[in-house]
Amino acid sequence: MNDRVERLDVPILMDEAWHYASGEAMERFSTGLAARRIEALRCDGCGRRYLPPRPMCGNCRLRMTHWVAVDDTGTLEAWTVVHQPILDGRTGEERPSPYGMGLIRLDGADTTVNHFVQTGGPRRQGVTPPGPPLFIGQRVRAVWREELRGAMDDILHFEVVEP
């Protein structure tokens, strides 16, 4: 094969929108977010409280119907600062990087949720000053959007709770 041969590229541009049904569990969860309320589903078999909620405990293979309240404070179980730009599924635009991503175990839940974590202070004049150092076990709390709309990003990110 000759690499120097010019190859014909056929670009495919798609502008389509998928509409996912959230399901009953995520609908109740999302509705709760719009009221700054976080709820998990608890498995009657193992007692594990799942957040975000889903209809079935994968380990016990049991339907879950028992809702339990969860706080908007929790513990950072893992964190990373991602430097690779990615496309935002909501907008199709490139998301600015770097950004902090964490696994947070909210008080009252047994699984962790993926969410953004604050890695710097408030951005001023295009500069983000360093924030408090992150570590596993650190206490964090949700920073809520001013106008809630019933979605995971009603929580803008989690910030460190200063001791």
Binding site: Y20, N114, H115, F116, A151
Partner: peptide, 8 residues
């Protein structure tokens, strides 16, 4: 798509 994609 519901809880992880919106967060990138």
């Amino acid at each position: 798509p519901i809880h992880l994609q919106p967060l990138g």
